[in-house]
Computed example of a mutant assay.
Amino acid sequence: WEGISIEFSAGVVTNGYIVALNCIDWAKSRTLTSYDKIITSLAFSRFCLQFFMISNVLSKVYPNIFDRFETLQPSLVIWMFTNQVSLCFASCLSVFYCVKIATFNQSLFSWLKLRLSKLVPWLLLGSILYCLVTTVAFTLFNCVSTNGTISDNKDNLLEFTFLIHSIGSIFPLTVFIASSVLLIISLWRHIRKMNLNSDLNPNFRNPSTDTHVRALKSVVSFFIIYNIYYVASTFSIGNLSYLNAEWETWVVSFISAAYPSVHSIILILGNPKLKLASGKILHSTNCCFKESFPADELLYF
């Protein structure tokens, strides 16, 4: 479980870093780009999700923590909302990538490219409202259905959590898959076209080919870890996970903790502003460390 703790710590640091840096930029200029608005919202939701995912891990290690229905219900409600918001914001990021990068001749794409900056705040707000509706429906249902024993209420709660999570995630999951597939197809076509031109004309070289290849790798990695996380988070819900062995619980918890951390690190490495700022922070930290512990002292230790 030490590895999972490291993942949680990395997720909190990386997502907190993205939020803090963009908030500082906003405080200075009072403006944020559409991309910065999306990744800041996504990072903040993941920052909160990391804390609430800890309770899920603790429930596997110490099952008696959530024996009381009054403790289990609020925990699942908060987890469901933050998890759904995180998935929806990730879908918004995928749509943003698709509209900005993909090259299709359809009029819909041309219309979206021109108006995307104005639509982003509404996409984010719509995502929050959508998650509120699913969470409120979940809460109201459980308030009505808590008439049996504590054991029956707990089982009903876990079953309905599984149901709402699965149904409520269909829309953002579908949007994410559709936009990601369209973007992958567009990037793949562009790369093939550039390679074909290069084969026909040896003197022809388009420097954007390497950029598109890196973009394709980034999108594919995002696509893979998003879907893996969705499956892992679904199977981690309560008694419906069928995780009897400790190693199975560990694997699911490890995957669930890895997604918010790994993808946020990919976002930092792929964003020049975030990457440059993180490099400066690491350089300053290294300098402070050397000043605090001179070479002679380090050799002594």
Results as ranks from 00 to 15, higher is better:
residue 268 I to E: 04
residue 97 Y to H: 11
residue 161 T to K: 13
residue 206 N to A: 00
residue 230 Y to F: 14
residue 118 K to R: 13
residue 203 N to D: 09
residue 91 S to I: 01
residue 264 S to T: 14
residue 219 V to N: 08
residue 103 T to E: 08
residue 42 L to I: 08
residue 236 S to T: 03
residue 14 T to N: 11
residue 248 E to I: 13
residue 267 L to D: 05
residue 295 A to Q: 06
residue 289 F to M: 04
residue 74 P to G: 05
residue 146 T to Y: 13
residue 294 P to H: 00
residue 148 G to I: 08
residue 79 W to D: 03
residue 228 I to P: 11
residue 17 Y to S: 02
residue 171 F to Q: 00
residue 139 T to L: 10
residue 218 S to R: 15
residue 171 F to N: 03
residue 142 N to S: 00
residue 9 S to Q: 12
residue 20 A to P: 10
residue 30 R to M: 07
residue 276 L to N: 12
residue 177 I to V: 06
residue 175 V to F: 07
residue 57 V to A: 09
residue 56 N to V: 13
residue 69 F to D: 02
residue 223 F to H: 06
residue 228 I to M: 13
residue 151 S to R: 09
residue 242 Y to F: 13
residue 19 V to A: 15
residue 12 V to W: 14
residue 274 L to N: 02
residue 276 L to D: 14
residue 256 S to Q: 15
residue 273 K to T: 10
residue 208 S to H: 10
residue 180 S to T: 06
residue 171 F to I: 04
residue 62 Y to R: 11
residue 204 F to G: 03
residue 281 I to A: 15
residue 263 H to S: 08
residue 57 V to E: 06
residue 153 N to C: 04
residue 120 V to N: 02
residue 43 A to G: 07
residue 163 L to W: 09
residue 243 L to I: 06
residue 83 N to P: 09
residue 204 F to M: 08
residue 105 N to I: 12
residue 112 L to V: 06
residue 292 S to Q: 10
residue 44 F to V: 00
residue 213 V to A: 11
residue 89 F to A: 07
residue 149 T to F: 11
residue 75 S to V: 09
residue 214 R to G: 12
residue 160 F to D: 00
residue 59 S to E: 08
residue 289 F to S: 05
residue 129 L to A: 09
residue 95 V to K: 11
residue 117 S to C: 01
residue 150 I to Q: 06
residue 164 I to C: 09
residue 25 D to I: 09
residue 225 I to N: 09
residue 24 I to V: 07
residue 14 T to L: 15
residue 165 H to V: 09
residue 175 V to R: 09
residue 213 V to G: 00
residue 234 T to L: 03
residue 62 Y to H: 14
residue 145 S to V: 10
residue 223 F to C: 13
residue 82 T to K: 04
residue 293 F to N: 02
residue 266 I to G: 01
residue 71 T to V: 14
residue 242 Y to H: 11
residue 149 T to D: 07
residue 62 Y to D: 11
residue 167 I to M: 10
residue 37 K to M: 15
residue 67 D to M: 10
residue 244 N to G: 09
residue 196 L to K: 10
residue 165 H to K: 15
residue 269 L to I: 13
residue 179 S to I: 03
residue 241 S to E: 00
residue 299 L to M: 11
residue 257 A to R: 02
residue 66 F to M: 00
residue 82 T to D: 04
residue 235 F to L: 08
residue 216 L to C: 06
residue 66 F to V: 04
residue 172 P to F: 02
residue 115 R to P: 01
residue 80 M to W: 12
residue 92 C to H: 06
residue 100 K to V: 03
residue 274 L to Q: 00
residue 31 T to N: 14
residue 282 L to H: 02
residue 171 F to K: 02
residue 193 K to D: 11
residue 24 I to N: 04
residue 283 H to G: 08
residue 21 L to G: 00
residue 110 S to L: 11
residue 200 L to V: 04
residue 107 S to Q: 14
residue 23 C to T: 14
residue 95 V to A: 15
residue 150 I to E: 08
residue 205 R to P: 01
residue 273 K to Q: 13
residue 278 S to Y: 14
residue 35 Y to L: 15
